[in-house]
Amino acid sequence: MKAGVVVFPGSNCDQDCFHVLRNVAKVETEYLWHRDATIPSDVGLVCLPGGFTYGDYLRVGAMAHVSPIVRAVKEFAARGGFVIGVCNGFQILTESGLLPGALMHNDCLKFLCKTVPLKVERHAAPWTDFEGEVLRVPIAHGQGNYYIDPDGLERLQDNGQILFRYSDPDGDVSKETNPNGSVDNIAGITNEKGNVLGMMPHPERCSESELGNTDGLRIWESVLGHCR
């Protein structure tokens, strides 16, 4: 089984995700180019990394979602393949309809880069099959303000699709712990089937002890454990 990291012109966390998957999580990893129309059959996990695809001069993710690779990712997800979209990857997933909701400008209207506590709402396969109530994971985005209508939110809750919420270090979720204005402090959700995860925080940025934090590695190891 291999992991594939999608590269669009303007991706800038592609090399980071590739590095963590290959050198830290020790899974064979290859780059998938935005013009590729298929996902190789031995790829079990596809990662849509952070960045500014095609510059994101249009609505974020709007150009990426019509690229050949995203069409292929949709088919891959429909077949049950695991897909993780981080940051800009999450924006592409909502734009392409693989995940519900939308990501708007942060309510502070500024780009924010800092490490924040995340409450893990569900410990379950494939993404969060580990112990640990609260993770510390860096965010780095200008448009991570998750919005969904009340009915949609109810569906997310009922189906257990909300995996991560912005919290305090003890796991308490409140308005004060919401960095960007997201509905219900949502930081990461899955699709109904659970094989597609979108999250604004960057697990690849906290996967190595040299960088002082390995909380993110648990997410990679969890899903890779279920791929193999």
Partner: peptide, 14 residues
């Protein structure tokens, strides 16, 4: 100021 700058991308910032 510095929280508006991505200071972690490329995974080298110690």
């Amino acid at each position: 100021i510095y929280e508006q700058y991505d200071h972690m991308v490329q995974l080298n910032t110690v």
